[in-house]
Design a protein around this nucleic acid. Sequence first.
RNA 1: GCCCCUGUCGUCUAGCCCGGCCUAGGACAUCGCCCUUUCAAGGCGGCAACACGGGUUCGAAUCCCGUCGGGGGCGCCA
Length: 507
Amino acid sequence: MTNSDKIRVRFAPSPTGFIHVGNARTALFNWLLARQKGGVFVLRVEDTDLERSKEEYERNLIEDLHWLGLDWDEGPDIGGEFGPYRQSERLGFYHQYARELLEKGQAYYCFCPQEELEKEREEALAQGRSPVYSGRCRNILLKEAQKRLETGEQAAIRLKVPEEGLVRFTDLVRGEVEFDLKLIGDPIIVRSNGMPAYNFSVVIDDALMHITHVIRGEDHISNTPRQILLYQAFDWTLPVFAHLSMVMGQDNTRLSKRHGATSIDQFRREGVLPQALCNYLSFLGWSPPEGKEVLTLEELVKLFDLSRVNRSAAIFDYEKLYWLNRQHIKLLPAQKKLELALPYLQAAGLVGKDITSDEEQWLSQAVELLLEGVDKFSDLPQKFSLIFDFKPESLDEEAKDIISSAAARQVLRAFVEKTSGLTDFNYDLFARITGEIKKETGIKGRDLYHPLRVMLTARASGLELDKFIPLIEDGAKLNFPRRIKSSLERIREFARLMHLESERQPV
RNA sequence: GCCCCUGUCGUCUAGCCCGGCCUAGGACAUCGCCCUUUCAAGGCGGCAACACGGGUUCGAAUCCCGUCGGGGGCGCCA
């Protein structure tokens, strides 16, 4: 239809809520192909289901897509050459083309009441037959139908499908696929309420928008023959079809909320990086030719290849997503890490709305250190509690265990004593004092440092002490909503609680 | 029930189209070791798969047939 051989692909979601990872993957694959081939990516909103579509859903959709890093060349928000891009605004087209089919005798009005059709379908199913429309209204003359319409009768419009034959097409990921027309029946193209049926509107839109490659989920594969029939009825050139396998949950059923987070905005809220999510999504059914797995969007654009997309369904693996997220987090510059971390720290009440440059500098350091090994940004406040919370009164079993031995108490008492006169503290002092204790008691390594770790953090594990001590020393001087206790404060509090001073050994 | 798609380690996959290079490769997870002022991270190594049954062939994960399993569809939903 156009003389341009530019690839034109589209993502055509119905705005029925938040965008799901399966759909996001479809969007991504379309976008990757368009960007790689210098083609055009179209966003079209399929909002003909009046009961389910809402305006705010379209905003969510656009927001999610943008967040993922996808952009489009034509769409409801930016317009384009072949608009409008909202199906609810394209009703004129559907009616125009439906009329054309009616006039050509390739479509007809169907007056069958819905209840009756429903009954017939159930009967067919019960008898083990394919539920195919009987064709009862097939031979009602257009003139006669129009007369009935004028008297106020309601009718849907059906496509007249040949009774015999095969529809076959070459699917870019599946190869040759064929369907028997006997099992198809005459599909409704316009509902009696005047709204186009899905199979009709997609074809009209895809054709009018010059879509060259239809890349979508496998759940559309059995719609394809009906759509092909429509292309043929209009004598339009067929697009290339590619059907992507489904995305499943761990129990191998269709991915749903009960499997965990499934909508894009949930991952965003969790603090998963969009580039990590795209990276992961791209691996659902596709793999790069070389082994490298941590890939940026730009790299994905370069490497993506529809012919390397496989056919079997993929199970969504949160572990691998989080692993990829960790890898992408590592790639981030410090400034970006802080910027992304801040909202989570603020929401947790650890950091105020406005921060001074001293605080910013400290936070940047802290984020850099504490982000290590974190799955997603929403886990960060929990990690920060290592610094902000000091609760020696509620040690866990492991920590209690570590300080319970005679050797541990000996180390702790010595440490308390050697720090008792100090007014200032830093890591060098810590190193010097531990060196002395080592010399005096012969206790070293884990036996020496682990009890001290418990004293300083009230936990059995955490950041390396050479990083931890400077962090709380600097942090203690700052005015965070929840104050950070200095090393000496911690030591004294701990000593008091554990009666380390009063137990001083007789000389 | 009928139709369509699909079946390689627990998971994502490479290999399959163009049979031998596959004693089936990589990654996540898992286990072990190393590193270490804890844990983690990181490094190294281990465990682990061609759904099953028939063919074809000197030779099959790769080709053919069947069985079984999984998924999708069969709407005046999209």
